Simulated assay, not measured.
Amino acid sequence: MAHPRSSSSAPSKGLPQMIRDQLRDEILKGTLPAGTQLRQDALAERFSTSRIPVREALRKLETEGLVSYERNRGAIVIEMDVTQICELLDIRVALECHAIRLSIPNMVQMDFDQMQEILDAYSASESITEWAEYNRRFHLALSAPANNLKLRRLIEEFCLNTDRYTHEMMSIATGKEGPQSDHYEILDACKKGDADAAVKLLELHILETKKNLLATDRMKQAL
């Protein structure tokens, strides 16, 4: 695994971001599961730097809801409950629906080809882990033509955070055919330039995940 460069060779503002990106990726992939203690001294040694950029990286992860600070334990990878996940899904609806409305007037054939390629790979895959990744890529591709980097960054963070907790569970429960059918309908609306239809389809798509999550939690509670 490639490590960020030491503080002597990397820009001081860039190193915390590089550390944050690496840890974030490992948290979202499950390499660092919920409950993992993130010790600053160990991370500083791992990334060949001081504790200062590590501390800044952990604070960034805290603002994203991936890490919390516990007394006598320091930074811990958090585990969200269903209520928190549903709140994030509601935020996703607001952010992604706004983004797709901005995106559609700017979409060109290159955008449609990219989204089609992602969905084709999704359909061909038999790996739930890969399904989550292709789902992430598709949703980000929908927002990219909005040409708003701050909005895209917010979507990426909330999309990834919810996918971390929901996609494997939902994929086991529903398979990929239902979500994929939604994706193709959204893509078709984008190709037609029908922003109203695309927004409605995307909203229903995300809220369906929320409904399935709540139903799955009810079933677990009943056992």
Results as ranks from 00 to 15, higher is better:
137 R>I: 00
183 H>Q: 05
7 S>L: 11
19 I>M: 09
118 I>V: 08
158 F>T: 11
66 L>H: 01
19 I>V: 10
134 Y>D: 11
20 R>A: 15
105 P>F: 03
146 A>S: 10
180 Q>V: 00
85 I>G: 04
109 Q>L: 15
97 C>Y: 03
129 T>D: 14
90 D>C: 05
174 T>P: 00
219 M>W: 07
201 L>Y: 07
25 D>P: 00
175 G>A: 05
57 A>G: 02
15 L>Q: 09
190 C>E: 04
168 E>F: 08
181 S>D: 04
222 A>E: 13
8 S>M: 12
174 T>C: 01
218 R>D: 04
188 D>K: 15
139 H>C: 10
157 E>W: 01
20 R>N: 13
197 A>N: 04
83 T>V: 14
114 Q>R: 12
194 D>F: 01
80 M>P: 02
60 K>W: 14
136 R>G: 05
22 Q>Y: 03
173 A>C: 04
52 I>D: 06
213 L>Q: 04
79 E>C: 08
42 A>N: 13
191 K>E: 15
69 Y>Q: 11
81 D>R: 01
189 A>Q: 02
97 C>L: 02
168 E>W: 11
182 D>Y: 13
182 D>S: 04
118 I>K: 00
124 A>W: 00
212 N>P: 02
159 C>D: 15
16 P>T: 04
62 E>C: 09
75 A>W: 12
28 L>F: 08
134 Y>Q: 13
32 L>F: 05
134 Y>P: 12
67 V>D: 01
68 S>E: 13
151 L>P: 02
180 Q>E: 15
122 Y>S: 00
142 L>C: 04
88 L>R: 11
130 E>K: 14
216 T>L: 12
79 E>I: 05
110 M>S: 15
150 K>H: 14
181 S>G: 06
118 I>N: 01
26 E>G: 07
50 S>K: 03
160 L>A: 10
124 A>H: 02
86 C>V: 11
223 L>A: 13
63 T>R: 15
20 R>L: 13
103 S>M: 11
190 C>L: 01
22 Q>S: 06
19 I>N: 06
162 T>M: 08
159 C>S: 14
208 E>Q: 07
148 N>T: 08
22 Q>E: 07
134 Y>M: 14
219 M>K: 13
53 P>L: 12
133 E>G: 04
41 D>Y: 10
199 V>L: 04
184 Y>L: 12
13 K>F: 14
44 A>T: 03
142 L>S: 01
223 L>R: 15
208 E>N: 03
13 K>Q: 13
14 G>W: 09
